[in-house]
């Protein structure tokens, strides 16, 4: 999660102290929530895809997110510019996801939910350790690309350009993913396979290959989220651990397996975190778990989850 003491938050806090609670202030903080939510959405979409279609609870999702940031650092290190990183970092992370599915996770399908869960849990520790060995245990800075530095006027005030960019990327990815799922033959197979893999096999389609692609997309999205988050908070081997818990909250609140749920819950949780860190910073960490508890008490399957999915 973003640190509570962030230049923008300090700036907003100052307005708050000087001018009191203005509508503009709330609107700006709402935007901060949207940007944070965009990162959550990208993570939760991948998580929900993997759970909904493969029944894999991916505990390595945070580690893939972290890899996205480090892939960016490595690429920038060899002179690749940020815009190409946006393309290549998710591709690298997604390819690693493909390998993990093909050689490890695939063997565990059909054996219950706990096997892949434990495997990915172990995998995440290995990934973190490898990054520590290669890049060191300390966090590394990640420069915001020149073109996206500074703030832009968004009518209600100035807002950091890079955060606007993060929101825009998430929207583009969402639209692309939606078109892919709803408008392509591959998407049709994925949608059908999520509901009933057996009939898809009966109709002559090799489901294993589809699962491989889904895993690549899910982990690639996590990589993209990590890369996008890096200029906001730097990169560290542990950056995936805390965001993993938060994305689980988002996925559970939205309803495990639901993509629409992942989007709505991602934005909601982002806004809740942003608002509590403005008004009651000491509760910012707890707020989303309280939100999850409330949602689960009222609707155990989350906003858009199907009841009994785990049974």
């Amino acid at each position: 999660m973003w640190r509570v003491v962030d230049p923008l938050d300090v700036f907003l806090l100052r307005i708050f102290i000087l001018d009191g609670l203005t509508p503009d202030l709330i609107a700006l903080q709402l935007f901060t929530g949207l940007a944070l939510g965009a990162i959550y959405v990208l993570l939760a979409l991948g998580m929900s895809l993997l759970f909904g279609m493969l029944t894999v609870v991916n505990f390595a999702h945070g580690a893939f997110y972290m890899l996205g940031a480090y892939a960016g650092i490595a690429l920038l290190g060899i002179g690749v510019n940020f815009w190409l990183c946006l393309l290549f970092a998710p591709l690298i992370v997604g390819s690693l996801g493909l390998l993990a599915e093909r050689f490890l996770i695939r063997r565990l399908y059909g054996r219950g939910i706990d096997y892949p869960l434990l495997l990915t849990f172990g995998l995440s520790y290995m990934m973190v350790e490898v990054i520590r060995i290669v890049f060191g245990t300390n966090g590394l800075p990640f420069e915001t690309p020149d073109a996206l530095q500074g703030a832009s006027d968004i009518m209600i005030g100035y807002f950091p350009t890079y955060r606007l960019f993060v929101i825009a990327v998430a929207v583009v990815v969402l639209v692309a993913l939606w078109l892919f799922l709803e408008r392509t033959p591959y998407g049709l197979i994925i949608r059908a396979g999520a509901r009933d893999p057996q009939i898809v096999r009966i109709l002559g389609i090799d489901v294993a290959r589809v699962w491989l692609v889904v895993f690549g997309i899910g982990t690639g999205l996590a990589g993209l989220a990590g890369l996008l988050a890096a200029p906001l908070q730097g990169a560290s081997p542990e950056m995936g651990a805390s965001i993993l818990a938060e994305s689980f909250v988002v996925t559970v609140v939205g309803g495990m397996g639901s993509l629409v749920g992942a989007v709505i819950a991602g934005v909601l949780v982002g806004v809740v975190v942003a608002m509590t860190s403005l008004f009651a910073p000491e509760f910012a960490q707890v707020a989303i778990f309280a939100l999850m508890a409330i949602v689960l008490l009222i609707r155990p399957q989350g906003f858009f989850g199907r009841a009994g999915l785990m049974s």
Binding site: L188, A192, Q198, I199, I202, L203, I205
Partner: peptide, 14 residues
């Protein structure tokens, strides 16, 4: 095993 959430056309496409 009609796939729920899919239209008749999409089931045929499948």
């Amino acid at each position: 095993r009609i796939v729920p959430g899919l239209t008749v056309r999409d089931n045929l496409r499948l």
